[in-house]
Nucleic acid binder design. Sequence first.
DNA 1: CTTTAATCAGACAATAAAATCCGATTATAA
DNA 2: TTATAATCGGATTTTATTGTCTGATTAAAG
Lengths: 145, 145
Amino acid sequence: MTVIFSKKCEYGLQAILYLAANDNSDVVKSEEISHILNIPKEFISKILQSLTESGLVYSKKGKSGGFALAKAPNKIRLIDIVTAIDGMSMFNNCVLGFPHCSPDHPCPLHEQWGELRTKAYNMLTDETLDQLKEKTLKKIGHLKN
Amino acid sequence: MTVIFSKKCEYGLQAILYLAANDNSDVVKSEEISHILNIPKEFISKILQSLTESGLVYSKKGKSGGFALAKAPNKIRLIDIVTAIDGMSMFNNCVLGFPHCSPDHPCPLHEQWGELRTKAYNMLTDETLDQLKEKTLKKIGHLKN
DNA sequence: CTTTAATCAGACAATAAAATCCGATTATAA
DNA sequence: TTATAATCGGATTTTATTGTCTGATTAAAG
């Protein structure tokens, strides 16, 4: 199967977009995220815990605890979440899997793929959570119905 | 981890590019492909077997058997190999993993990602094996040293 | 202070992907 | 016609990813 982001990363992106859409409220508990986004509760907890370590998410323990963004939505870029969860391998490794692919010894797809990959990287770097908030609200609204 | 193509698909692309580079000779045995490209022999055999079923590869059984391209290199596009091994999910599924992502109910990244994905698809559709042969020969030459 | 409800932490289980093993079949060539 | 060397096919093992369970810790609220 061809994958772009791991399940972990997909879930992490979904959850953090949800947190951005609920940025007005205090914290959101993992139970709610799990239910709305249809992600196993324990799994999304783990992911948000790791994003807490990365400094992207704030977690409040104990009763009435939950998760929220650790920074203003305009300070969090999609690339921050992707690299925190999946690392940079997608942007560094050869698309054909050649171990020693480099500008000196490029693989047959080096230039073409490099260009596309740079565009993907720039896209994820340009998009911040505040810019996606409206679209996310619409999408979540649809999920709730 | 973030992946583009599965290991199977990477290996398959490497091997078929190798076959294209050796299109003058009769057949190439999996032993040789395994050695040059550093892919487990049994694994690349399996992959080439499945590509044989897909009609992209020709296999000659018995002593002095091996694998070769089933068509002229200019008739095989990279997308053919990718879809034969990994399917089309990469080009159909929502990048954020939302189950019901569609033009009607787009995910927050729908348009931006769609554009990139189309470019990737077109690139894989445009590139045929004959076009990549020279570049492959250089790369293989480097691997052999 | 005690109950309650949440995160946290680490082990564990299930599934999927990657890699290996082995015997059967096939065809070449001595 | 027999030995050899390759693919073929299926089962099996290993490893990584995904998902689950359980108990500890934390903090709010009665």
